[in-house]
Design a protein around this nucleic acid. Structure first.
Length: 507
RNA sequence: GGUCCUGUGGCCGAGUGGCUAGGCAGAGCUCUGCAAAAGCUCCUACACCAGUUCGAAUCUGGUCGGGACCUCCA
């Protein structure tokens, strides 16, 4: 076995993954800011890293997966009017800040559940770790890398850059940053700017204006933490000063993750907090990043319900999950109805093949152990074992699914008898089923969607199937077609199988 | 302006210097009372121009286009 390779944004190359502690992995992923509803773009990192989490466990690692909830409300525009997202929204919605945070946290958890994401092992909140953040800021000040001005504390980026590789993760050069922010059309005139020694400095703690609702007592007066410090405080608290994987969206690389590295390096003896930095790419819509600054987001609730001008129909959580997994996580993924519909149909085909495979194996009496068709066996074994190789190579879920789609016709042919079960043999068949189960369910976290049939409905459908069968045997096709057509309008597909049986599925 | 990414067949998307990924859509055939599903077959692309090479969609340079970050952002 060659071992898992991942693309490390920090070194810009694929590297063999070796955890710090054998058999254990610590992974931190930047979680949601719960000041509003999640949109499709937000779904990508949480699904991507859920698959990473699942895959690492599949490989036998014991994983501590920490994903925070940002509920402290960092600046919408740093330093500007001391106004934060949560406070502002709370005023608008006439809610207590914590009421608002609770509302969107619940909604977020609901969406994660719909996506069949496993819960992280620890889900800390920023408001629950104010003390840790203050302690960290104190440490940075005493190390001489931060300074206080009027009750606010700023990180001294220039001093840090003199002694540490600032900008390594995001590929930034300090002087370029300066010239960029001095350009009027890009750099904004920020209010806090005159407090900072240099423009590139960032806030660790901000003094709270009187009208600011979220506020805590600190050594520097009443205020609230800067955005970046929470992740540094919580990741080190639960994963240690250095841990294995830090994940998040590419758009967080700068300034968020760069700042995290700076803060943590100062507090923790100069080394970077994480060994492997993994970043997922963006979801785009008409080629443009989906995000609040573009006003082009589609909320998850709208996606699931289909209530949005851009949506031709509703898309299920599993369709979206499948859609995301059909692309490599480091590529952009363009949203369109056509693409989603393609995923919906592809998933349906894949899932039905998987169920056919399970059915074949559950009644495997009399299948020879070894397959008689060596070419077939070799093909299936090759496609199956490549699944592992593709995942090992920087989690290429797209290639895994492509191979599985190549196996679908084999499975369906076995089911329809185009290929004899003895041609493939029980051994290969079992291997195939194991692989499908592993990847589809355990690693990719997919599940069947419409198994909502209860006992009574099942009985009724059975009855209808029998009536229809009688009608057909009498060539009373008017009746048999009526049953099938009416059921179809209710979203129930009744299909005649080759063996004379009937299959019923919900669409 | 800086840094970086990217341009693949109708759509979405993998990808390696030589061996036509895959999904969806479309066409034909088989099966079927008819459907649906399924199976088989077809549709052979890689922005443009040079260069390197026996050979490039894949490497290099240039041109044009798209995008990300530099500001909250998954």
């Amino acid at each position: 076995m060659s071992g898992l390779k991942v693309y490390n944004s920090y070194t810009r190359q694929k590297e063999l993954f070796e955890p710090i502690t054998k058999g254990h992995v610590g992974m931190y992923v930047c979680g949601p800011t719960v000041s509003g509803e999640s949109h499709l773009g937000h779904a990508r990192p949480f699904i991507t890293f859920d698959v990473v989490f699942r895959y690492l466990m599949h490989l036998g690692y014991k994983v501590r997966y920490v994903r925070n909830i940002t509920d402290a409300g960092h600046f919408e525009e740093e330093g500007r009017e001391a106004e934060d997202k949560i406070s502002k929204k709370a005023v608008l919605e006439k809610l207590e800040p914590m009421e608002l945070v609770q509302k969107y946290t619940n909604l977020f958890h609901w969406a994660m559940h719909e996506f069949n994401n496993l819960e992280p092992t620890i889900e800390p909140t920023a408001t629950g770790h104010i003390v840790e953040q203050i302690e960290m800021i104190k440490k940075i000040i005493s190390a001489g890398y931060a300074y206080e001005v009027n009750g606010s504390v700023y990180f001294d980026v220039r001093k840090y850059a003199d002694n540490y590789p600032y900008g390594k993760l995001s590929g930034r050069v300090l002087d370029d940053l300066q010239s960029a922010s001095s350009r009027s059309e890009i750099g904004r005139e920020l209010d806090g700017q005159d407090e900072k020694h240099n423009r590139e400095d960032f806030a660790l703690w901000k003094q709270a204006a009187p009208e600011h609702i979220m506020r805590w007592v600190s050594p520097w007066g009443i205020g609230f933490p800067g955005w970046h410090i929470e992740c540094s405080a919580m990741s080190s608290k639960y994963l240690g000063e250095q841990f294995d994987i830090h994940g998040g969206g590419m758009d967080l690389m700068f300034p968020h993750h760069e700042s995290e590295i700076a803060q943590s390096s100062i507090c923790h003896g100069g080394h970077e907090p994480a060994r492997y930095w993994l970043h997922n790419n963006m979801i785009t819509i008409n080629g443009k990043k989906m995000g609040k600054s573009y006003g082009n987001q589609i909320m998850l609730t709208h996606l699931f319900s289909g209530q949005h001008p851009l949506l031709q129909q509703a898309y299920s959580p599993m369709t979206i999950r499948f859609f995301i997994l059909q692309t490599h996580y480091r590529s952009t993924l363009d949203f369109s109805n056509e693409a989603l519909q393609a995923s919906e149909k592809g998933l349906k085909r894949m899932w039905e093949a998987y169920q056919n495979l399970n059915k074949i194996l559950s009644d495997n009496a009399g299948i020879a152990e070894g397959g008689s068709d060596e070419t077939l066996v070799a093909k299936v074994m090759r496609l199956s074992s490549e699944l592992d190789e593709f995942m090992m190579d920087d989690l290429n879920t797209a290639k895994v699914l492509a191979n599985m789609f190549e196996l679908v016709p084999v499975i369906n042919s076995l089911k329809d008898g185009h290929i004899k079960l003895n041609d493939i043999g029980l051994r290969t068949l079992t291997e195939l089923q194991t692989k499908f189960h592993t990847y589809l369910e355990s690693v990719f976290g997919l599940k069947g969607e419409s198994e909502k049939e209860d006992g009574k409905l099942g009985g009724v459908l059975q009855l209808l199937a029998e009536i229809r069968k009688d009608a057909r045997s009498k060539k009373d096709y008017a009746t048999s077609d009526k049953i099938r057509n009416q059921l179809q309008q209710l979203g129930i597909d009744m299909k005649d199988e080759k063996d004379g049986g009937v299959s019923i599925s919900f669409s």
